[in-house]
């Protein structure tokens, strides 16, 4: 199969020269598969990611806070839709992807398997979870697959509001009463480590990373992104007057980066495997939302058919010429 090898070498040269791949271009099967997995997983994360925050919409402490939260959750839905569309350009179908999520075949970001216990969690999630997502997504704006890159550019533009509203919320709590500050600290304690885990296993435990980097799907390793995130976040925590829950965290003059303590990878893999605090609840919420929304999809289909029939009846000549 010499010609196939040539095609793969040519493809590698093409992406190495910073050229973008578009849907109709030839691409290695493994490139296509990797992208379908990554983009659909990313889309699922946006969709499942609506759940922990939707939990607080009806209990937002002010109308302003409620409007912001609603807008943010609506954005997540939009981001999921951009990403599903982008994955579909690779030949998978929307129904297939949704099915894979509901049967547990497809994964989503493990961070959403943690519960949002207090209002401060809305701040910590925006600041840290969206912050970590931005770190990853800014890199993905330059990914080699055109439709994915374009979706990422849109998403990054919108995501920055998510992070800032979260930080603002934390600021209000940190400058509030003693109880409010304690609530902010508690949220930070619970979300810090899971946020660091969002970047995925360390580089030596991440066998697919090298291939993804060679294909220019990813441009930075998990550990590089994690380090950048820590370096940006530590001063932000200091500004809030909150303490990051890591006794080993300290500035390393020599490296020019913050050192941080070991991550509990056993916890990470347990949550990925389905044993996080909310895995069952999240999937169940998605499945029932899909099942309970079936009548809406059926009604929309029926309405479209009725309208089409009416148009056809009103314009018999147009129908004849179209047929």
């Amino acid at each position: 199969m010499a010609p196939k090898i040539d095609m793969e070498a040519r493809f590698l040269d093409y992406v190495s020269a910073e050229n973008k791949v578009e849907p109709k271009h030839w691409m290695p099967d493994a490139y296509r598969k990797t992208l379908v997995r990554q983009i659909s997983q990313h889309a699922h994360s946006e969709i499942v990611g609506m759940l922990p925050e939707a939990n607080w919409i009806t209990r937002a402490p002010s109308l302003r806070a409620k409007l912001i939260l609603l807008a943010k959750v609506q954005d997540e839905a939009g981001h999921g839709l951009y990403l599903y569309s982008s994955a579909e350009t690779l030949g998978t179908s929307r129904d297939q992807m949704i099915d894979d999520l509901h049967t547990g075949k497809a994964k989503y970001s493990s961070i959403f398997n943690y519960p949002t216990l207090t209002w401060a969690d809305m701040g910590a999630v925006g600041w840290l979870v969206d912050g970590a997502a931005i770190q990853n997504q800014v890199m993905l704006c330059r990914t080699s697959y055109g439709p994915y890159s374009r979706a990422m550019v849109r998403i990054c533009k919108e995501e920055s509001f998510h992070q800032r509203q979260g930080y603002e919320l934390m600021m209000h709590l940190a400058r509030g009463t003693k109880e409010q500050k304690a609530m902010a600290q508690d949220a930070l304690n619970r979300w810090w480590w899971p946020s660091l885990m969002m970047f995925g296993p360390s580089d030596d435990q991440s066998p697919n990373s090298a291939q993804s980097m060679a294909w220019r799907i990813k441009r930075k390793s998990n550990d590089e992104l994690r380090q950048e995130f820590v370096d940006k976040t530590v001063p932000q925590a200091e500004f809030l007057g909150l303490t990051l829950p890591d006794p080993d965290l300290k500035w390393n003059e020599e490296r020019g980066h913050y050192d941080f303590g070991p991550i509990d990878w056993a916890e990470f893999f347990a949550v990925v495997a389905g044993n996080g605090p909310c895995n069952t609840e999240r999937l169940e919420a998605r499945r029932s939302a899909h099942a309970e929304g079936a009548w809406v999809r059926e009604a929309a289909t029926a309405y479209a058919a009725k309208q089409a029939a009416r148009r056809a009846a009103a314009a018999p000549t147009a129908k004849a010429s179209a047929a």
Binding site: L81, Y82, S85, S86, E88, R94, R150, A151, R154, A300, T301, Y303, A304, A305, Q307, A308
Partner: peptide
């Protein structure tokens, strides 16, 4: 801008 699924043009 992108794409989406819908049953008809209006929707």
């Amino acid at each position: 801008s992108g794409s989406l699924h819908a049953p008809d043009a209006e929707m």
